[in-house]
């Protein structure tokens, strides 16, 4: 065989420095620094009550659905896309799971059906974006309505209550999934969130799929001409996003032992905000799971701290919105500096 590889001689002499990009580390460090500073600030302002373990665990529980959704959105954002339907998929996954339980399906199977519903929703989004080349913003804006409509249809406009089944055993299992504690006081959903973060973090940083995903997001045509199956890669990203959304939906429904048909409304924007604060670029090609965890906690800590300080809810919205814009502005400015 012809070997162009013969061009290459010994590699032992190579002395290429393997310094990882300092800038990337700085970005993570900065978001983390902001999180720590917020915690200290609120700790001082609330006279220490913010820093009580119980309060911190409450924050962890509150942050969980946003963070899990944010992980899936991180994948989609890295491809340079977006998923505005993710909030609707939360409602859809939750209500499908609850409906299955009320129809007598066993709990593990019902959960799998719920997640499958999210996967199918993600697949539909992905097909619109890849095969039909609809702009992600428009495609998922449309499916946002469609999936919310389907959610309402499944529940016939009403919540699907597991509680109404009257089966104490099933109710207590769901209550545990949605808000139970393990190792003393750690919320079970938070454990799920941490496991999901680890699994998806590994997928993103250690697998061939992860590499392809970044390549597609950085320059789609280059990726395609390098033999990367762009359609498959993007489809997978949307499917992962659908799956995480339905997971978040099942956790929300489980906490109340009832699936609300309007559950998850507006969550997609919270998820995107978490990812972006954590350094994921809406232009694609950059981002990571750890950043999204930090971003979700920045949002959660702000909300909780401002609540403890009895800041008016409307003022809170103004503050959080401002922080998102400042975060993105800083990130854009950093990128600009870099490209000079």
């Amino acid at each position: 065989m012809i070997m162009s590889g013969e061009l290459v001689t010994s590699t032992k002499k190579t002395r290429i420095s393997i310094m990882k990009s300092k800038d990337e580390a700085l970005q993570k460090f900065l978001a983390f620094g902001v999180l720590i500073m917020l915690c200290i600030l609120f700790g001082v302002l609330t006279g220490g009550s913010f820093l009580k373990i119980d309060n911190l665990l409450t924050i962890a529980l509150q942050v969980t659905p946003y963070a899990i959704l944010g992980f899936g959105l991180t994948f989609v954002l890295i491809t340079g896309g977006t998923d505005l339907s993710a909030g609707s998929v939360i409602g859809f996954g939750g209500i499908v799971c609850a409906k299955a339980v009320t129809m007598g399906v066993s709990i593990p199977v019902a959960i799998i059906i719920g997640i499958l519903a999210g996967i199918i929703a993600g697949l539909i989004n992905g097909l619109f974006v890849t095969k039909l080349s609809v702009t992600p913003f428009i495609a998922t804006l449309g499916t946002q309505f469609a999936f919310r409509g389907l959610t309402q249809l499944v529940g016939q406009g009403k919540p699907v209550s597991i509680q109404a089944l009257g089966d104490e055993k099933i109710i207590s299992v769901f209550r545990f999934i949605g808000g139970g504690t393990v190792f003393g006081r750690v919320p079970f959903p938070t454990i799920i969130m941490i496991i999901t973060a680890i699994v998806l973090g590994i997928v993103l940083s250690k697998t061939g799929f992860g590499r392809r995903l970044y390549a597609v997001g950085s320059n789609e045509e280059t990726a395609r001409l390098s033999g990367i199956n762009v359609i498959k890669t993007k489809l997978t990203a949307y499917i992962i996003c659908g799956a995480t959304a339905s997971m978040a939906g099942i956790l929300l429904a489980a906490r109340l032992a009832s699936a609300q048909s309007n559950a998850g409304q507006g969550y997609e924007l919270e998820g995107i905000a978490a990812a972006v604060i954590g350094g994921t670029s809406v232009m694609g090609g950059e981002g990571g799971i750890l950043g999204t965890v930090i971003g979700a906690f920045v949002m959660g800590v702000l909300r909780n701290g401002l609540n403890l300080l009895k800041v008016d809810a409307f003022v809170q919205m103004v503050i959080i919105g401002t922080i998102i814009v400042i975060g993105v502005w800083y990130d854009t400015a950093r990128r600009k500096r870099q490209s000079i």
Binding site: S21, A215, N219, T222
Partner: peptide
């Protein structure tokens, strides 16, 4: 369409 400019040299060499 030959490179991903905001990715590293390593990732570009190994892209295909």
């Amino acid at each position: 369409d030959g490179l991903a400019l905001n990715m590293t040299v390593e990732r570009n060499i190994n892209m295909a």
